Simulated scan of single mutants.
Amino acid sequence: MSDPVLRLDGIEQTFRGTRGVHLRALDGVSLSIGRGETLGLVGESGSGKSTIGRTALRLYRPTAGSVHFEGHDITRMHGRELGRVLRRRSAMIFQNPSTSLNPALRLADTLDEPLRIHRAGTPAERRSRVGEALERVGLDPAMGSRYPKELSGGQRQRVGVARALMLNPALVVADEPTASLDVSVQAQVVNLLADLQAERGFSYLFISHDLALVRHLSHRIAVLYLGRIVEIGPAADVFDRPAHPYTTALASMGHPASERVVPGGEIPSPAAPPPGCAFHPRCPIARDRCGTERPVLQPTGDGREVACHFAGELTLTTAREQPAAPPPPLPLPTAKELV
């Protein structure tokens, strides 16, 4: 991929837990997002999806590895330099619009804030841009005088979208942006996100547990399991012809119950990841090699990369004939969502 907007190389992210326990949230994650591209990021709770989003925007400094944004290595940047290179050119849409908007600020002040901080335009120009932003997301500019509590959940999320786009960013990280909305409002917000991208050409890192939604919006999809990318490639290929057993399990969730692949047990704790392939304790086709040798991402020849010693062996068709996955050999603590 030439000139990606974002590139993560070998990112590791470790957090110190209670009693000196270290939680490895990300374990050697590498990915890139092209200009105008949407990369969908899927995986179970506790897999590290939100951690990737926040590390990409340098809300977290990675423990190891590097983050490149528009050709700049921002891994160790801070202060004004980070603000000039990254903050003005990136934004985030949060999951819960009820908590991501300041309840003490009127909507116009909320939208004006990034413009004011980055000294973008005169007060009159900023007021004009605020009105235009509200109108573009389907809200009456007169609503700028209201407070967040006076809006519905869908309206608040539209304000969140408008705020993210006030500085015309090159990259938007959307972290479960429709999870707190009902189905009808979700569709409206999703269509808005797609329309805005088509107009402005920015890139999305789209994080969601809703597989159908991710497939609809994304050009490519990365599948994350316990802090590791296990498969990445074109959206249709990843879910129509999954090559990793975990991807097969996710893709089967939209099938009748008799055709679903349900991994055994629960996702292990990032404080005690299994050796070898992290998925092997739950995998229906795991063998001895899987428990001792960690697979690395390898190209499959069709634009995908898969980290599996037996990639492509468990398909949506063959999965129907597989026995249920065995339980883990030793009880492991249940993972909790890190962020």
Rank of each mutant, 00 (worst) to 15 (best):
R16V: 13
P242Q: 07
V214F: 09
R116S: 07
L41F: 11
R156P: 05
L134P: 00
R119P: 00
S258C: 13
H280I: 00
P331D: 07
P245C: 03
L41G: 07
N96G: 09
L31F: 10
E132I: 04
F310V: 00
P245S: 09
G36N: 06
S208G: 12
A222N: 08
G43Y: 13
G28E: 07
R87M: 00
P331K: 06
G46E: 08
E313S: 05
V29R: 09
R215D: 03
A235W: 02
Q197N: 03
A243P: 01
V296T: 15
R156V: 00
L26M: 04
A335C: 07
S203T: 03
I267H: 04
F310C: 01
L217R: 01
E12M: 05
Y246W: 10
L330H: 15
R136P: 04
V339Y: 15
H118C: 05
F69Y: 12
P284R: 12
P281A: 09
T300I: 00
G43A: 11
P331C: 13
P97I: 07
P234R: 09
L205V: 06
L181Q: 03
A311N: 02
A104P: 00
T14W: 15
E150I: 05
E81S: 11
E70I: 15
I232T: 12
P329V: 11
A222Y: 10
G48N: 11
P234F: 08
H219N: 11
D237P: 00
R200T: 12
P242L: 06
P295V: 02
Q186M: 13
I267R: 04
A25I: 03
D140Q: 11
V130W: 10
P234I: 01
S66A: 15
E176K: 04
S98F: 15
A335L: 08
E266C: 02
N96Y: 07
T55Y: 03
Q157Y: 08
G201F: 14
S258R: 15
A319E: 06
L105R: 14
R215Y: 06
S218F: 02
P123K: 05
L167R: 02
P114R: 04
I33K: 12
T292C: 02
